[in-house]
Design a protein around this nucleic acid. Structure first.
Lengths: 218, 218
DNA sequence: TAATAAAATTAGCCTTGTCTAATTTTATTT
DNA sequence: AAATAAAATTAGACAAGGCTAATTTTATTA
């Protein structure tokens, strides 16, 4: 059984691994969790002792099969609770992440599976992230962002890479949801700002950071 | 905001206060939580500093209005989650207490109210305990136990005072649920054992402890 | 009331998970 | 390759929340 902290580290490592497939360093983990690198080094030792990760100076941190299993279950619970909070309790898009952050740690062997069934076995959570199945498999993860689209190209929003309420509320204000169609009218060479048309309506300009936070399907 | 530990102490004090209306001593709290009295003394200091309790050697520990409010909310959340786990996720009577014990600590301002609405504003939880309303008020709590019934008397089970799986599974085995009708046929003078007839069927003998754990309405 | 038992409290220690500051190792740049 | 910058690590500290052992209070009983 893992502690709350251990679970948060596992989830963080899992996310970093999925996000980039790059080397996961103590500093990267520290930045991601807002912790001090010294604390991360301590936890790396603990998780290594528990055989949930392997740490190699060259390769960085990697999840072992056992660690991946644990991390996947945490992510599964997180995303299922997000669906529950939105669909059953009527929360908004931008309110659910932090609550699910707490609920994902509820430990009961059958809870995730029961919740999954109760919700009708959803494939994606409200942010467009695929929900791992009981066996660990999950639907396709999209990786192309709005920033990757060529000028003139059309696309459809399928997920958000950033689940902060700042970003989600901004999206709401712009009228963007999962499924919204966007045309990229122009890329401003100076700062990579993007001029877009949302659902065929009047054009708006958004930043490069914005574009990189929106996952799309062409 | 209270820590997990503080919340558990508040809930414990609330329960002891409701159970007996007796003086709540450090030892009583320690016994109830399975902690050492020394630890309890530490926490009494913390909760006193936060003005959630008042401790007087003569009167014992008492919740302040602020402490009562916090404790009531924790109990409200616990009992609502129990209803959810039983009714929506299909858990059994004896499985829900421990899970709700974790879920009651999820902190979100509107969560309890949304859950309450989603569940249809239940008055009682699956163990027959009244669920505090958003304003802190709650339906009647029963206090008469099967052990209080006179020989020959009839009664109806309305709640359980003990929510351990040991007790609940025993009840299940005997075919006793909330609403079950019981006739007390005889009290054995020697050890206060109770000879009962469940739903008018063949008689069974149960202990005094058993009788004191079952709340009934005459 | 004195003796004894029980309860409460204090003192000091432990573990978890965090931190800062100092040091060592590794990378990068000149 | 040497100098410098960045990253990793170690050492030592701290807060929370628990413990044991010892001591002081408070109750109870002879």
């Amino acid at each position: 059984m893992n502690t709350l902290s251990e679970e948060n580290y596992l989830k963080c490592i899992y996310r970093l691994w999925q996000d980039k497939g790059q080397k996961i360093t103590p500093t990267a983990i520290a930045d991601s969790l807002g912790n001090n690198p010294a604390s991360v080094v301590d936890m790396i030792r603990k998780l290594t002792d528990k055989q949930l990760i392997v740490y190699d100076k060259k390769k960085g941190v990697e999840l072992t099969p056992a660690g991946l299993k644990d991390a996947t279950l945490i992510v599964r619970r997180h995303r299922l609770w997000e669906v529950f909070l939105l669909e059953k309790l009527g929360y908004h898009w931008d309110e659910i992440h932090d609550i699910a952050e707490e609920m994902e740690h509820i430990k009961d062997l059958t809870l995730a599976d029961r919740l999954d069934k109760f919700l009708g076995f959803p494939e994606y959570d409200p942010h467009g992230d695929p929900i791992p199945k009981a066996n660990g498999k999950m639907a396709k993860r999209y990786s192309t962002t709005l920033a990757d689209v060529k000028a003139g190209g059309h696309c459809r929003v399928v997920a958000v890479k950033d689940t902060t309420s700042q970003f989600l509320q901004y999206l709401q204000k712009l009228g963007i949801n999962i499924g919204t169609r966007i045309q990229l009218l122009e890329k401003i060479a100076f700062d990579n700002s993007l001029v877009i048309s949302i659902n065929g309506e009047e054009q708006k300009t958004v930043s490069q950071k914005f574009g990189e936070s929106l996952l799309i399907d062409l």
